[in-house]
Design a protein around this nucleic acid. Structure first.
Lengths: 77, 77
DNA sequence: ATAATTGCGGTCTAAAAAGGCCGCAGTTAA
DNA sequence: TTAACTGCGGCCTTTTTAGACCGCAATTAT
């Protein structure tokens, strides 16, 4: 499918994650270690290249020390 | 993979979605129509049987007329 | 009693995520 | 000027979601 409106939303999510990671001054590899997700995958997530699952959201939120809910705290289309 | 701790979290998410659907007095088929997701899939989601993606979360939130963030507003392990 | 609705499980295919590893430019530190 | 770190993209395999359709048992109307 890969609907067009989704692409923008994935980018928004990615930017938000990147913003939060940088706020904690973590490198991709450091966050990778903290949430047990390959650093290249996190890079793709931040770029909005993959449509992550709920459990991946939980892993990231935990490592970033925020609530899953907060991770999605953005306006989507 | 299907980690054990994830199962519980998926059930929590599912319960939350079910609660929100019932609060709006929608049947599975009605919600299905509203968010364009097959009713049998929604059933599985509510039962915690599948690990939905970010975009599916957006679809459900939209149909339930709440923010994606609110859809995840629960405590997870 | 009959008909409609509802939740839910099963089945199938195609598409995509998960998970992991490698390597390369570019930047930063030693 | 080396050495280390960083972001990032490609590649590969396995597992799972997405998406769609069918049918049934139970509940709820009519």
């Amino acid at each position: 499918m890969i609907r067009q409106s989704d692409k923008g939303n994935l980018k928004k999510l990615g930017s938000n994650i990147k913003r939060l990671r940088e706020a904690k001054k973590l490198s991709l590899r450091e966050l990778s270690y903290a949430c047990d997700i390959d650093n290249s995958k996190i890079s793709k997530i931040e770029k909005g290249q993959i449509n992550i699952t709920f459990t991946t959201i939980l892993q990231l939120a935990k490592a970033l020390e925020i609530s899953p809910s907060e991770l999605l705290m953005t306006e989507y289309d």
